[in-house]
């Protein structure tokens, strides 16, 4: 930043740190910083406190690698959940999305990414080994692969499915099809093709 010499270093630091966040560029970072500067001292401290406690209060679940305030997490500890059905997701936000449906009563396994050699991510960089071990240890009956419906998600799902070949565990994938509220005529051929292939009885 050009103006850096003329303003306090504390401001520069705040701008630089904020600009590291996803979706925030230098301009937004600057706007946020100056907004905080103008806010009351209390408000800034409350935010700082929230950030400080963010990591302290949150731990990674050693069973499913979800983030929670306890280990194992509340889902892994819940007696109301079916622990024999494991839903595999790429990221925490995918878990949140599936939880929001309130239709899934099993447990999760968060991979923290998908196989993408271009980004230097292979199976060893993901929580795949832990998944296989866990499924065996807990005598799971089904592993649902809920990776993203793109090339990398497919690569990850195929790789994992291969690892369970020959076991008694059923490996399934999320259905692919048409979005609710969408127009059939605007669906691309791949989506429509998938929806046709995966049709269910009416």
């Amino acid at each position: 930043m050009n103006e850096s010499s003329s303003r306090p270093r504390s401001i520069d630091r705040a701008v630089t740190e904020l600009a590291r966040l996803p979706g925030i560029g230098p301009k937004t970072a600057q706007r946020l910083t100056y907004h905080l500067l103008r806010s009351s001292g209390d408000q800034v401290l409350v935010l700082a406190e929230a950030l400080r406690n963010l990591k302290e209060g949150v731990v990674t679940c050693s069973v499913c690698f979800n983030m929670s305030d306890r280990n194992p997490c509340h889902i892994c500890e819940s007696p109301d959940r079916d622990h024999a059905v494991i839903c595999v997701v790429e990221n925490l936000l995918d878990l949140v999305a599936i939880e929001r449906t309130a239709r899934f009563r099993g447990v999760y396994h968060v991979l923290h990414g998908a196989i993408s050699p271009m980004d230097g991510i292979g199976p060893d960089e993901l929580r795949i080994r832990e998944l296989v071990q866990r499924a065996k240890d807990t005598s799971a009956t089904e592993v649902i692969l809920a990776t993203n419906p793109n090339l990398e998600g497919d690569a990850t799902a195929t790789y994992i499915a291969r690892l369970f070949e020959g076991s008694d565990i059923a490996v399934t994938r999320l259905a692919r099809g048409l979005p609710v509220g969408g127009d059939l005529e605007y669906a691309d051929e791949v989506t429509l093709g998938n929806a046709l292939a995966g049709r269910s009885s009416a």
């Binding site: 196989i115 050699p117 690569a155």
Partner: peptide
């Protein structure tokens, strides 16, 4: 993706990892 995987492993590429890219 396949080339990226190859550039990482070369001839030591694990078959299990190459398989998906080859199929696609």
């Amino acid at each position: 993706q396949r080339n990226a995987a190859l550039s990482r492993f070369g001839a030591r590429m694990p078959a299990q990892q190459l398989d998906f890219w080859d199929q696609r």
